[in-house]
């Protein structure tokens, strides 16, 4: 019995000392135990985007005639093919679309032959001749343009060219000015400012209501006229704002801002001068596939084509 107690007590001593060592070490390194808080693991099923708001559209138009000159003489930053949603309605309306190359005579294309040239029967030498869309008859080929379309020029218009364009407008010609903030280097303001329009160096954005991206803004506020007729809602894709005295015809809403100016204001990416001669549009993308099919974009393009097709009254004196 004494032996048993002796052995038991020794074992107890060993265990107690060992336990003390273990406990001492634990207390030396630990103040307590860590209880991890619950970690929210992400679920990926709730991520979704709305479907594309495409709209069925039928282009109803009246066929007419006229000549549209499209500027390709100033390193214009666009491809003809990408703007087929714009050019096709023009051609459908019976318009002849000509392209101005750098070697062409702008004055002749916009204002026609001088009396002397007509009398002499001379045809001023041209450079390489651009092939026109809907190649009209001989008379149309020689006739000056009714509408001049300038899209994202990367070169400034010279002073002489500016004078020619001004004269063209004074005589009843119409201008369609198109730019896009993503086509950087565009030199359109020297021309536009002569008609009271400024294409600002900004883009419009809306963080709350947009067409899948903050740079794709909706426009629902329109001043009623031919260009905005039948429009309820359009989507513009990285559009810019055009400043003018009062030429704006489409306006941004409360949550759409300009990248240039942080304060809230009513901005206009589409403008039409009061004499109905200059139409300015500050987005190209909405006129390209597939963006033209979104909301009322095709209707806007058709309205622009109708505006182009409506010829202004031309005065004949030079």
């Amino acid at each position: 019995m004494r032996a048993f107690i002796s052995i038991a007590s020794r074992i107890i001593v060993v265990l107690v000392v060992a336990a003390a060592i273990v406990a001492g070490r634990a207390l030396f390194f630990h103040e307590g135990s860590y209880q991890p808080s619950s970690v929210a693991m992400p679920g990926y099923t709730q991520v979704a985007v709305p479907p594309a708001p495409t709209t069925e559209f039928t282009d109803n138009f009246t066929k007419g005639s006229g000549i549209v000159l499209v500027d390709l003489a100033h390193r214009n930053r666009f491809f003809r093919e990408e703007l087929s949603p714009l050019f096709l309605p023009l051609v459908s309306r019976g318009l002849t679309v000509r392209f101005l190359s750098p070697a062409d005579n702008l004055e002749k294309e916009l204002l026609g032959d001088t009396e002397e040239e007509k009398g002499n029967g001379e045809t001023p030498a041209n450079g390489e001749e651009e092939v026109a869309l809907n190649d009209g008859n001989e008379e149309e080929k020689e006739a000056p343009a009714d509408v001049f379309i300038i899209i994202a020029p990367q070169e400034e218009f010279s002073n002489d060219a500016l004078k020619t364009v001004k004269k063209f407008v004074d005589k009843g010609g119409k201008l369609l000015l198109i730019a896009d903030p993503t086509r950087s280097g565009t030199q359109i303001n020297k021309l536009a400012m002569g008609f009271g329009l400024i294409f600002e160096s900004d883009y419009l954005y809306n963080m709350i209501e947009n067409e899948l991206n903050y740079r794709n803004v909706f426009i629902t506020d329109f001043k009623q006229n031919g260009v905005t007729g039948k429009l309820k809602k359009i989507a513009l894709y990285t559009a810019g704002s055009i400043s003018s005295a009062d030429a704006g015809i489409a306006f941004t809403g409360g949550n759409t801002f300009s990248s240039l100016v942080e304060s809230r204001q009513r901005l206009s990416p589409i403008a039409l001068t009061s004499d109905d001669k200059i139409l300015a549009v500050y987005d190209i993308t909405f006129m390209t596939e597939p963006y033209n099919g979104i909301l009322d974009n095709n209707q806007l393009i058709a309205n622009i084509a109708d505006w182009v097709a409506q010829k202004g009254k031309r005065t004949t004196s030079k």
């Binding site: 001593v13 060993v14 000392v17 336990a19 003390a20 060592i21 273990v22 070490r25």
Partner: peptide, 10 residues
Amino acid sequence: VGVALGIAVA
């Protein structure tokens, strides 16, 4: 022995 055991375990 207890210390050694304790260290060996701890």
